[in-house]
Nucleic acid binder design. Structure first.
Lengths: 196, 196
DNA sequence: ATCAAAAATTGACCATGGTCAATATATAAT
DNA sequence: ATTATATATTGACCATGGTCAATTTTTGAT
């Protein structure tokens, strides 16, 4: 017998309660490991030990280690975008950069975090769109909303530009030659030019 | 006794002829592997077998597998920039995107290649600037040259913008939702807006 | 030519992500 | 309640990048 899944909206296999519990144990254990060792320091072995399951179980729940990261990082970013969606639309480059400060802080908290997010920001296939890719769609819609009242250029184009400059500003954060100025300040410079 | 190195310009250990030969064998073997298996398919084990050396020797010459990729990809991109530097300055967004076609083709030839290049595009420390990071400096100088005669915005800012849009255009190439249009076309759209 | 110090090489070994056939558990039909 | 089928779990095992103490080779001084 096949049941309807409210979560995915398609007909698929019913999910056992046991599955949900194991999955929750793994996620909780992973968060605990991240809290003490950071994202880069996470080891699958430690996660399964804390969760009290075998290693194979981990990979029955997540395609690979990156898929777990996708979940963890995506959830964290979703929280940030929840706040951004609720806040008023910033009307100046400075206000925009200020609003984006939490996102910048999180995405640049670890080089590893930044790399994983970039790697998963676009989905290779429609079926494999993950949490991180979805936050980039949210980001795009948010920036389009921020630029909706402008008439010189389409908001979609302006939004993609802001996305590009945001990545650029954060990338240079990790670059020794540009470490002098902060990502937020660089972003203001970019946005002043892009949105003038 | 310590000798002067013409290559690095600083006083350091003399390099044995044997070292250069082994290094060349490793690089040649790596190129052969890439030719048949692609960059993502490269295995260190296969490289050392082809080169006829032990695995430990590989890591005496390269910090890790990524360092080899840095050399290989950096060399390839340097060739592309040699051609770009020699060519006349393009004066329209279309001409710019045309000129960048070889770079786009190479950087998006494999998802793995794109990811490695992005990861090494900025150096974490001044001492560890590698071949890929250097090509990004070349890219920056090239774009600054392309925009040098403009007076509305500093060429350095315009150059960083072009860099940002180039990455953005290529990123969307790998994204299922935007696969419809080509990276080069997207770049033209971006540059028309950025350089108007 | 000999020898001591420095440099390069070796390969057994380790760390860690990932696989899969076997087993255990849950579900649904009778 | 029993049984058959589907699902979840297990852990030994594999793949591959990376380490390092021991060994070999090169170098420079005598």
């Amino acid at each position: 017998m096949v049941k309807f899944s409210a979560k995915t909206g398609v007909m698929n296999k019913p999910i056992q309660a046991r599955t949900l519990k194991t999955r929750a144990k793994l996620i909780d254990a992973a968060k605990a490991v991240v809290a003490t060792s950071g994202y880069e320091g996470l080891r699958v072995e430690e996660v399964v030990q804390r969760a009290g399951v075998a290693k194979g179980t981990f990979f029955a729940h997540f395609r690979d280690k990156d898929a777990l990261m996708d979940q963890l990082l995506g959830a964290e970013m979703d929280g940030i975008f929840d706040a951004l969606d609720a806040a008023p639309v910033p009307d100046t480059p400075e206000a925009m950069a200020d609003a984006l400060a939490p996102l910048i802080t999180f995405m640049t908290s670890e080089r590893y975090v930044f790399d994983v997010i970039l790697r998963y920001s676009g989905a290779a296939g429609v079926t494999e769109i993950g949490p991180i890719a979805r936050t980039f769609e949210r980001q795009f819609r948010l920036f389009a909303k921020w630029t909706a009242q402008r008439s010189d250029l389409p908001p979609e184009l302006l939004a993609e530009g802001i996305q590009a400059f945001l990545i650029q500003a954060m990338s240079l954060q990790f670059c020794a030659l540009h470490a002098s100025s902060q990502a937020q300040d660089r972003l203001v410079t970019y946005l002043r030019a892009w949105l003038r």
